[in-house]
Design a protein around this nucleic acid. Structure first.
Lengths: 228, 228, 228, 228
DNA sequence: GATGAATGAGGATTCATTCAT
DNA sequence: TATGAATGAATCCTCATTCAT
């Protein structure tokens, strides 16, 4: 596992105060850098705690302790517990989008279905294996902000899947496409649970099985070869 | 404490005019009936609240309020919040088992796969549509008692699926059977989410889609016709 | 959920003299000092409330209020109500033991009985007058931890009394010694009630009377002069 | 509020039966007799529960259960928990007064001190051994009503002791008499604890020891032989 | 009268959040 | 900024007491 927290993203949760602070001296820059580090620290801690105990029963004090700071410090960077989840979700979401952008890039989509599945699924699965907090968060927090992020994620993936699907089955109706996409996404999610719950060979086996399911589900629908 | 929840008294939730509800003395039976009603009331309220807010953030006072009683009354029937969830889960679990018993009965399993899928899936889906609190509870409560019930449910379903599978694919290894069963269950669960999230035609469409997925997934594996 | 068995229970009361815990900065020491003060504050408040209303009907909120802090603060230092009583009892017990150690020191025990009674009883009575919460706590809390402390206290005193007695009445049987010691302790306790219930001259009178009782009770038993 | 709670507090078991509002029919008598039985039942149950758990932690439901009746029935005879204790205390108090009347009757007081102690202490000790709830109640309930009863008891005993004392030591001052009486009572109480805490031979030994203590304490004070 | 279900104020305890240092 | 003590509303749960039957 380890700490894979990138910095340099947007902190955005609390930085309204330092927008106009200083332009000339170097200190604020360093200060800001330290702030970024703190935020990463806190988000990483939050990811761990959310993963372990779930959002609802994760206490801010536990997060602060895990991050090695005091609760007061936590609240210097986040206005409340929800904001931590939203920010964490947002960051992971962005990286997920990037991953999806890579996974669904045109050269992957032009291959025959079996290769396409490999090309698309492998990086997405890898991302989720490396960021197990992602699903944990996106699932059942009950937090509106997160729910919205989940929507985004869901809608984004659905759109991508539909796009691919449209290429393969040009004559499918919009409704059919929606149903199929949702099914695909659902199958993916539940398989992901299985994949994340296992390791090594088992994990590989479930990954293979997922591809088999999708392949068999989709193959009969294909009416054209992939475009281009 | 509170292991006295036999079922059986389902009589006329709406009409209080049970003229024949006393065999020897009037009071005990009526008292018992009232207690049963209270328990049902409370469990129904709990189901609603758990469904809406999740187990963790459901407060006992909220459940009591939803049931239209005082917190003290709730605690007359359940020793604590957890027990409510466990009892509710237990009751639903039992009914689920009954449903599964019906769904997986031999005459259903002897048919060809498409009909088998109809025969098995339809009642299970129906049950879940009628008891939406079931999945909500079984999912992430963090309550040991529930987790165990979930285990039971999961293991029970898995065993049933494996049994069916073994008939269809006699030469599959134990590992393969386990993987396939888990995939099937996962696909079922995620489709169930979709099904529960929709109504009417959409619901039917997703149900059909689930069957399609499973049919296409399983058909190539079948090496024998079903026994007898 | 709540696995925070932290400092509260075992602050151990006497470690205020830790001169070495802060060498570099002043803050930790001030913090710790504040914590110590809070604990003392809370224990003092608890002593007052326990004294006034008894352990069972003393509410933690009342203790917090008496200490001038919020309930949450109380729980920052003590995990629960019982722990307050145990800590308070423990602290007082330790001081009692010290007092007893002084009271029963050899040079006191070598004197003739009348002087011995003065030398032993006066400091013990003084201690109890200064710490009226002591008996109040040791009496009927129903708390196991306290009961154990009470046992210790009782057994300790009994042992000391028996030791003195053995010197004075070498030929008394073990049973007789036990009976006499228990009687002495009982007489002491009941007189203490009287002493604590009065002030000034009256208190002195009861103190004198206690000594008279013991003197007359014990004198006829003495068969040797005190050792050495 | 004002509903039906008239009788409860002072029914007092023995004397209300004479105030009979109905003389003609048998039913009210029987009814009243049943009421008396209920009250005795409840008081006996209360005695047991108070003895076992102390007043504060005795719940009215526990008392009702011990008495084999429903909580509602308990409240038909007593307006509240305190009243039960007060009534129980009152009844025991009365019997204690009777015992004291017997113990301190003139022919006992005219004997020489050793016999007097036997004659007075033995019945009082016996009474307390047979009614262990008495001390349990009189001790630390924190209930005003009980405290008052305790006062009565205390004052009554003190007066009797002082009366005896005055006969033996005619020239003692009022203050001295008060002090000595209080000491005697205190010694008696603490010995009683010891006596009640043991059985058989041990109990006898402590009883003997109590008499020894009092004898040695009082003998030197006697300046006259008992009157008559 | 008797029952036992129902009540609800009150107590112990937690935790997101604030504030003095 | 960092700290961690302090806050207090909210939660679970109890029990003396009342009320419908």
């Amino acid at each position: 596992m380890g700490k894979n927290t990138e910095k340099g993203t947007k902190s955005s949760a609390t930085d309204t105060a330092d927008t106009t602070d200083t332009d000339t001296t170097g200190t604020p820059r360093r200060r800001q850098a330290r702030g970024e580090r703190r935020i990463s620290q806190l988000l990483a801690a939050a990811a761990g705690v959310f993963c372990r105990t779930g959002y609802a029963s994760a206490s801010t004090n536990a997060i602060a302790r895990e991050a090695g700071v005091s609760p007061g410090t936590l609240y210097q960077y986040f206005p409340n517990k929800e904001a931590i989840a939203v920010e964490l979700g947002g960051q992971l979401l962005q990286r997920a989008h990037e991953t999806h952008g890579q996974a669904f890039r045109p050269e992957n989509l032009q291959r025959p279905l079996p290769e396409l599945l490999d090309a698309v699924l492998d990086p997405v699965i890898a991302f989720n294996c490396e960021n197990p907090a992602f699903w944990a968060l996106m699932h059942g927090t009950g937090v509106p902000g997160i729910a919205q992020e989940h929507e985004e994620l869901h809608a984004g993936l659905l759109a991508r899947i539909e796009a691919v699907l449209r290429d393969f089955c040009p004559e499918a109706s919009a409704h059919e496409l929606a149903h199929i996409s949702n099914m695909i996404l659902g199958i993916f999610k539940s398989s992901l649970d299985l994949i994340l719950a296992h390791e090594g060979e088992e994990r590989a086996a479930y990954t293979a099985e997922l591809k088999t399911v999708l392949l068999r589900y989709l193959e009969p629908m294909i009416t054209t070869t992939p475009p281009r």
